[in-house]
Measured scan of single mutants.
Amino acid sequence: KHLIERYYHQLTEGCGNEACTNEFCASCPTFLRMDNNAAAIKALELYKINAKLCDPH
Score class of each variant (00 low, 15 high):
Thr12Met: 14
Phe24Ala: 10
Thr30His: 06
His9Gly: 12
Leu53Lys: 08
Phe31Cys: 10
Leu11Gln: 02
Cys54Tyr: 00
His9Ala: 13
Lys48His: 06
Ala39Ile: 08
Asn36Gln: 13
Ile41Gly: 13
Ala39Trp: 02
Leu44Ser: 14
Asp35His: 04
Ala19Lys: 13
Cys28Phe: 11
Glu5Pro: 09
Ala26Gly: 06
Gln10Phe: 03
Pro29Val: 05
Arg33Leu: 06
Cys15Tyr: 00
Phe31Pro: 05
His2Trp: 02
Leu44Phe: 06
Asp35Ala: 09
Ala39His: 04
Tyr8Ser: 09
Thr21Phe: 12
Ile41Asp: 14
His9Pro: 01
Glu45Arg: 09
Met34Gln: 08
Cys20Met: 00
Asp35Lys: 04
Asp55Ala: 10
Cys15Gln: 01
Thr21Asn: 15
Lys48Thr: 06
Ile4Val: 10
His57Ala: 12
Asp35Ser: 12
Phe31Asn: 14
Ala43Tyr: 00
Pro29Lys: 12
Glu23Ser: 13
His9Asp: 04
Glu18Asn: 15
Leu46Ala: 07
Leu46His: 14
Ala38Thr: 08
Met34Phe: 09
Leu3Thr: 14
His2Lys: 12
Ala51His: 06
Leu44Trp: 05
Leu3Val: 02
Asp55Lys: 15
Phe24Thr: 12
Ile41Pro: 08
Lys42Ile: 02
Lys42Arg: 11
Cys15His: 02
Ser27Leu: 02
Glu18Gly: 09
Ala40Ile: 04
Asp35Glu: 11
His2Glu: 09
Ala43Leu: 01
Ala39Glu: 02
Glu45Leu: 04
Ile41Phe: 05
Asn22Pro: 00
Leu44Thr: 15
Asp35Met: 09
Lys48Cys: 02
Ala19Arg: 11
Asn50Ser: 14
Ala51Cys: 05
Ile4Met: 08
Ala26Glu: 03
Ala38Tyr: 15
Leu44Gly: 15
Ala26Lys: 14
Pro29Arg: 09
Glu23Arg: 10
Thr30Val: 08
Phe31Gly: 11
Cys28Val: 05
Arg6Phe: 06
Glu13Arg: 12
Leu44Val: 13
Arg6Lys: 14
Pro29Met: 04
Leu11Glu: 01
Pro29Thr: 05
Cys20Arg: 01
Leu46Thr: 03
Tyr7Ser: 01
Tyr7Lys: 01
Asp35Asn: 07
Ala39Asp: 02
Gly16Asp: 10
Ala51Glu: 07
Leu53Cys: 06
Leu53Arg: 10
Thr30Lys: 13
Cys15Ala: 01
Lys42Glu: 07
Glu23His: 08
Glu18Met: 13
Thr21His: 13
Ala38Cys: 08
Lys1Thr: 07
Asp55Ile: 05
Leu44Asp: 14
Thr21Ala: 14
Asn36His: 05
Tyr47Cys: 14
Glu13Trp: 05
Ala38Leu: 14
Leu32Val: 13
Phe24Trp: 15
Lys1Leu: 02
Glu45Gly: 08
Glu23Tyr: 07
Lys48Phe: 01
Thr21Ser: 10
Leu3His: 14
Ile41Arg: 13
Ser27Gly: 08
Cys15Trp: 00
Glu23Pro: 07
Asn37Lys: 07
Leu11Phe: 02
Ala40Phe: 04
Asn37Cys: 05
Pro56Trp: 10
Asn22Leu: 01
Tyr8Thr: 15
Asn22Cys: 02
Ala26Pro: 01
Cys25Pro: 00
Asn50Gly: 12
His9Lys: 15
Ala43Gln: 02
Pro29Ala: 06
Pro56Leu: 14
Cys20Pro: 00
Lys48Arg: 08
Gln10Leu: 04
Lys1Pro: 01
Met34Val: 11
Cys25Asp: 01
Ala38Met: 05
Phe24Pro: 01
Leu44His: 07
Ile41His: 15
Thr30Ala: 13
Asp55Trp: 07
Ala51Pro: 03
Asn17Val: 10
Pro56Gly: 14
Asp55Glu: 12
Pro56Thr: 13
Glu23Leu: 07
Ile4Glu: 11
Leu3Ala: 03
Thr12Asn: 05
Asn22Trp: 01
His57Phe: 15
Phe24Glu: 09
His57Arg: 09
Ile4Tyr: 11
Tyr7Gly: 01
Phe31Glu: 06
Cys54Arg: 07
Lys48Ser: 05
Thr12Ile: 09
Phe31Arg: 06
Glu45Ser: 09
Glu18Arg: 09
Cys25Lys: 00
His9Met: 12
Glu5Lys: 14
Asp35Thr: 06
Phe31Ile: 05
Ile4Pro: 07
Leu53Val: 09
Leu3Cys: 13
Gly16Ser: 09
Glu5Asn: 15
Lys1Glu: 03
Tyr7Glu: 00
Asp55His: 04
Gly14Leu: 00
Cys20Asn: 00
Leu32Phe: 04
His57Lys: 07
Asp55Met: 13
Leu46Arg: 01
Glu23Thr: 11
Asn50Tyr: 12
Ala26Tyr: 08
Leu46Asp: 02
Glu13Cys: 09
Cys15Lys: 00
His57Asp: 09
Ala43His: 00
Asn17His: 12
Leu44Ala: 15
Ala39Lys: 05
Asn50Asp: 14
Lys1Gly: 02
Thr21Lys: 15
Leu3Met: 14
Cys15Glu: 00
Pro29Asn: 03
His9Thr: 14
Cys28Trp: 05
Arg33Pro: 12
Asp35Val: 05
Ala40Thr: 15
Asn50Arg: 11
Leu44Cys: 11
Arg6Gln: 14
Lys52Ser: 03
Thr30Glu: 09
Leu11Lys: 01
Thr21Val: 13
Leu11Arg: 01
Arg6Val: 10
Thr30Ser: 13
His57Ile: 02
Tyr8Ile: 13
Asn17Ala: 13
Ala38Pro: 12
Phe24Asp: 11
Glu13His: 12
Lys1Ile: 09
Tyr8Leu: 14
Phe24Met: 11
Asn37Pro: 07
Glu45Tyr: 04
Ala40Val: 05
Asn17Leu: 08
Leu3Ile: 10
Ala51Tyr: 04
Leu44Gln: 15
Ala40Trp: 10
Asp35Ile: 05
Glu23Lys: 09
Ala19Thr: 12
Ile49Thr: 13
Pro29Trp: 02
Asn36Ile: 07
Tyr7Met: 04
Gly16Arg: 06
Asp35Arg: 07
Ala39Gly: 08
Asn17Ile: 09
Ala40Cys: 15
Ser27Pro: 01
Ser27Thr: 06
Phe24Leu: 12
Ile4Ala: 11
Leu32Asn: 15
His57Thr: 15
Thr21Glu: 14
Asn22Ile: 02
Asn22Gln: 03
Asp35Phe: 03
Asp35Gln: 08
Ala40Arg: 15
Asn36Arg: 14
Asn22Tyr: 03
Leu44Glu: 15
Arg33Gln: 06
Cys15Met: 00
Leu3Lys: 13
Ala19Gly: 12
Gly14Cys: 00
Gln10Trp: 01
Ala26Gln: 05
Glu13Leu: 13
Ala39Cys: 11
Glu45Lys: 06
Ala19Ser: 12
Tyr8Lys: 14
Ser27Met: 06
Asn37Ile: 04
Asn50Ile: 03
Phe31Thr: 11
Leu46Asn: 03
His57Asn: 15
Leu3Trp: 10
Gln10Ser: 07
Cys15Ser: 00
Leu32Ile: 10
Thr21Gly: 11
Ala39Leu: 07
Arg6Cys: 03
Ile41Gln: 15
Ser27Asp: 06
Ala38Asp: 03
Thr21Trp: 07
Thr30Gln: 10
Phe31His: 12
Asn50Val: 05
His9Gln: 14
Asn17Trp: 13
Ile49Leu: 10
Thr21Gln: 10
Glu23Ala: 08
Tyr8Gln: 15
Pro56Ser: 08
Cys25Val: 00
Tyr8His: 12
Tyr47Phe: 15
Cys28Tyr: 09
Cys15Ile: 00
Glu13Thr: 12
His9Glu: 06
Lys48Ile: 02
Arg33His: 07
Glu45Gln: 06
Ala38Asn: 04
Thr12Gln: 08
Cys25Glu: 01
Tyr7Cys: 02
Ala39Met: 09
Asp55Cys: 07
Leu53Met: 08
Glu45Thr: 03
Cys15Thr: 01
His2Leu: 13
Gly14Met: 00
Glu23Gly: 10
His57Gly: 13
Ala39Asn: 04
Cys28Pro: 02
